[in-house]
Design a protein around this nucleic acid. Structure first.
Length: 269
DNA sequence: AGCTCATGGCGAG
DNA sequence: TCGCCCTGAGCTG
């Protein structure tokens, strides 16, 4: 159940494992059988992520496009691949390693042109060094939608999910309900730079940490244990508990069908 | 065994 | 804005 940092992490892992290798691909469950047959036995040439989308390139100019959605999962292993258990949408393997994919929203094969179109539909991704934050700024600045909604819009901030949304707004003292048009250029630039740092760190560490070093003693002392997502955060899933910085109760609300967490005192409207 | 919930996103209306 | 799709973990009983 990943945000963009995890997808980038997985892309690197798949690339390290299989790039320049002839790989086998199949679909024990059957739902990806036709797609798997198109790339089975080819050399994997590239593994990359744009936001939450993963692309695996092959030497016949075809791509596997994967989107995990809320439930999708990769499992990696070394050695002989195990007997398929449960719903296994896709397997990739060579003589040394295997990777298993379960529960994705999207798992399909695209040709070059379709892959390019798919990438064009995805907004700038703070983790990618080739991202153009200007595209995001234009959207934010022209929108009356709450910035808490814009941060979840993958055409504006690709790869940002519910945790990074809550945390970056807290770190910048911005109410999730502030309209995009009322976010200043300086605030936008600071948030974008912050997302780049936080999400890139999250890619390397494989978990999400958003607490500044100077607040860590306080947070570590008071947080009973890490949440299920791993890592230390200020407000995500801390509804009903005291804000680490000011003691005000952290609130939860529904914003477009997703849980939103914020401190009304540190992030005033 | 059955229910609820989760870091997502799409299409219908 | 709503309902629906995908799966598994962590409860309850």
């Amino acid at each position: 159940m990943p945000e963009g940092n995890v997808i980038h992490h997985q892309a690197r892992r798949l690339g390290r494992a299989f790039r320049r290798h002839v790989v086998r691909v199949d679909s024990p469950q059957g739902r990806f059988a036709e797609g798997a047959a198109l790339v089975d036995g080819h050399v994997l040439t590239k593994a990359e992520a744009y936001g939450k989308h993963l692309f695996l390139g092959f030497d016949n100019r075809l791509w596997i496009h994967v989107h995990l959605g809320l439930f999708g999962k990769w499992r990696f292993g070394k050695g002989e691949r195990p007997e398929p258990r449960g719903q296994l949408r896709m397997r990739i393997w060579d003589e040394e390693r295997y990777a298993e994919l379960r529960g994705p929203t999207v798992c399909e094969v695209l040709d070059d042109a379709a892959k390019k179109r798919a990438v064009e539909r995805i907004g700038p991704d703070p983790i990618r060094t080739d991202a153009d934050p200007e595209r995001a700024w234009v959207r934010v600045q022209r929108s009356g939608a709450p910035v808490g909604a814009l941060l979840m819009n993958q055409q504006v901030f690709a790869g940002v999910g519910n945790i990074y949304r809550a945390e970056v707004l807290f770190r910048h003292g911005i109410s999730p309900y502030r309209p995009g048009s009322e976010v200043t250029r300086d605030e936008f630039d600071a948030m974008w730079a912050d997302l780049t740092v936080l999400m890139t760190a999250g890619t390397k560490r494989g978990r999400i940490d958003t607490v500044r070093a100077e607040h860590l003693p306080e947070v570590m002392g008071r947080a009973p244990r890490e949440d299920r997502h791993g890592g230390e955060v200020y407000v995500y899933r801390r509804q009903g508990r005291e804000c680490f910085l000011c003691g005000t109760e952290v609130l939860i609300a529904d914003l477009q069908g997703r849980n939103l967490y914020w401190c009304p005192s540190c992030q005033p409207e």
